[in-house]
Amino acid sequence: MSDTIKAVFPSDPKFLECVHSLAEQVASLIGFDGRRRYNLILAVSEGFTNAYLHGNQRHCDRSITVLFEFSEDFLRVSIQDEGILPIDNKVEIHRSLTMSEAISGRGLPLIARFADRVALRYDPEVGNTLTMTVNISGDSGSNDKIHKVEVADGNHIGDNGRVHDPSTEGKT
């Protein structure tokens, strides 16, 4: 049994403040405080920004849907854009947090760092959907866990946001 909160925002960074407030209220509802509260707001902010910039390609006439599902055990946040093309995983996901002076590309690795599970899917009928799941009962505020991001091509981001490609695992 889980509760659900769904909000549809115009695809416009002006609404980041509203998205931020909504995430803050959800954090209060599920009892997140301190670092976990900050991390949830950060992850949702990153997801919305990613949907605007890379999913909707800065088109303000589109929308971004933010869905929170939560129970005693987990919180799942889905952020869906109306992109007509899949987010370029090569650009956005194949980055690590150790990329020194790059100007962009830290969004998804930051989400991956703080959520227990992150998935990015593209459906031509719908758009891109970024889903992040946090185990409420676990210590999701820790920075020491191994995190995983799943993407459509089967690759995932592992520890420290580095990419693992199953087809090359074991090769040097």
Partner: peptide
Amino acid sequence: FINSSGLGTLVSILK
């Protein structure tokens, strides 16, 4: 609060 856009902007300004 700072997110990746803010970080990117600071790196850009530093450059």
